[in-house]
Design a protein around this nucleic acid. Structure first.
Lengths: 344, 344
DNA sequence: CTGAAAGCGCTTACAG
DNA sequence: CTGAAAGCGCTTACAG
């Protein structure tokens, strides 16, 4: 497998090792193993394959990048890979790549522009990834332009002004509007809204959708019922505590994402309020958890797995010099058991 | 930043580009940028830094691996990165690495031995990672031995017979025993157990812990109350459906993990059974979700974030030729609101 | 203090 | 059909 070296460990098998074992030159080893179109005698080919297998030879990917000028690696920058949302997107990317020529390398930006640029992107670019998928993040449009000049680039869940063909977004505004319409149709009038992270585009769009629906129904938005909850469970809980403490009446809460909704539900329980009997609850995303909440959560489904798959597919097309041809994804309201007509 | 090439894209800036811009040799560029101990004149140093910054130079990590024989990359193999458990471990690894010399590359084995070996490990080894962390997985002990011969290796959440110093495990058996004891102390006698993935070591250990506690209490285990649930939400739901359908009486369910517990809770609800009034429920892992279940789930906490951190730290020590010095992690019973004395 | 040279592990025209 | 040679982008003894 490998030859002993001074510190007891072993160095990796190289093409020269295989060449010696098979009694041919490194050139020939390379031709056989890369499936070159240059013909190789059948018995030579067999001898090479046997030697490579016996020694457990694995071509050094770094050396290949150098000579080929391509790494077959795609860089993916997410913000918080441990969250269900980003995790699903990564799973989608992986799924599309499975069995193909490319593989993904991940790096996390943690919603921190410093870290995203200096940490995640820098790492990926040093590795000379063949293309880049940015999921969310706070890089400026100028930075994106600059990146796109060197590296094929697709952005997911964020805008890339001037490059609609490289954007993979869902219509958050419409999704939020449909969700709010659902509550309205049930008869709710005093609907609270828990915002996502301030300044984050998805967050903004969803709030606009909520306001669209209220306006279309001729209802004023009571600003007392609009609170910040940063897309986090704990923040959803805290915001709901404030909401209840404020004494302002409400019969439903629409949350900017499912995580915040789970926090909201727990806060309601702390005050003896049950979903949906006392208060209706709607989330956004349809994380794997939503379906298994008790009661199952009514929410707006984002096709996260498909977003990941489509991003990978589009990026590979872009690398090949083709138009990325990104599909448009619709959100879908999934009505489950956390919504009902208001009590009174 | 980079020079134009035929296809409109641009090739990356090399050390030669910087050398020309600064009017010195590549050797000098390298010395300045790597912080070599060889002295460099102050004004030369400044000129180099200025040129490198102006051109946006990023050393090619692949070329460096080749010449240095080290990649500063650690390979991490998980099974299902989108799950909360693996996601948290990755977050822990990332957290420890932040700001240091190493970075992580992930690949997923998907609980599939073929894929784990041919896909994930092969990829990582081709990239010549400096070390390997395997989280879970189904690689044989012989395979691990073979890997460890070439590459520093730490395993998390699985055994490595003969190499206890490279194993990072929590005491699943004891954790499960303590959880069962908790139910016993509340007065439960007919306790159902939902197993994890068959053949998986954590799963086995937890079942043993359950049986230990029952035996110590002098209680027989009713095999009708032991069902398979593969660590998945849906499987937990299905198993609980079967349990209820069987008609066998029970007052509590202990689940091999939190995901299965959330499925179990939903199945109970479908039959009009409430947690904890009708049935007590205990999980395992303490995923971020557990605390925000309604009611909050009593569970056995595994310090997943710390596992990830410790694995990264241990691997770096191992690479440096030091003993990995892995800490021992204890599980901890977190009593929340899903458990109560049995009804009758 | 600085540059020319060699070499890391590969691939691929170029000869034969 | 096969091998020797050059080169990808770096780093580091070796000279000066």
């Amino acid at each position: 497998m490998s030859s002993p070296s001074s510190d007891g460990r072993t160095r990796a098998v190289t093409i020269v090792d295989v060449a010696k074992a098979a009694g041919v030159s490194p050139s020939t080893i390379s031709r056989v193993l890369t499936g070159s179109s240059v013909p190789v005698a059948e018995r030579t080919r067999l001898a090479v394959q046997e030697a490579a297998a016996r020694l457990g030879y694995r071509p050094n990917a770094n050396a290949r990048q150098l000579v080929l000028g391509r790494s077959t690696a795609l860089g993916v920058v997410t913000q918080h890979p441990a969250s269900a949302y980003f995790g699903e997107i990564l799973a989608g990317v992986d799924d599309h790549l499975r069995g193909g020529d490319y593989h993904a390398i991940y790096a996390s930006g943690n919603w921190d522009p410093e870290f995203e640029d200096g940490g995640a992107l820098d790492l990926l670019l040093r590795h000379r990834v063949d293309g880049l998928i940015l999921v969310g993040g706070l890089a400026s449009t100028e930075r994106l332009e600059e990146l796109a000049r060197t590296t094929p680039l697709i952005v997911v869940a964020r805008q890339f002004p001037g490059h609609p063909e490289r954007e993979l977004v869902v219509d958050n505004r419409k999704g939020a509007r449909v969700a709010t319409d659902h509550l309205l149709a049930l008869g709710h009038r005093r609907i609270a809204y828990l915002r996502g992270t301030l300044g984050q585009p998805d967050s903004l769009e969803r709030e606009l959708g909520f306001r669209d629906a209220m306006a279309a129904a001729g209802l004023p938005v009571d600003e007392q019922l609009v609170l910040d909850a940063s897309f986090l469970r704990q923040a959803g809980l805290d915001a709901t505590e404030r909401l209840v403490a404020s004494g302002a009446p409400f019969t439903a809460i629409f949350c900017a994402n499912d995580d915040a909704a789970s926090g909201a539900q727990l806060a309601l329980r702390r005050h003896g309020l049950t979903v949906p009997d006392d208060i209706s609850l709607v989330g956004f995303d349809d994380t794997p958890e939503a379906e298994f909440r008790v009661p199952p959560l009514t929410t707006v489904r984002q096709p996260t797995l498909d977003l990941g798959r489509a991003a990978a597919r589009g990026l590979i097309r872009l690398i090949a010099g083709e138009p990325p041809d990104l599909p448009i994804f619709e959100t879908e309201l999934v009505v489950r058991e956390s919504t009902a007509p208001p009590r009174s």
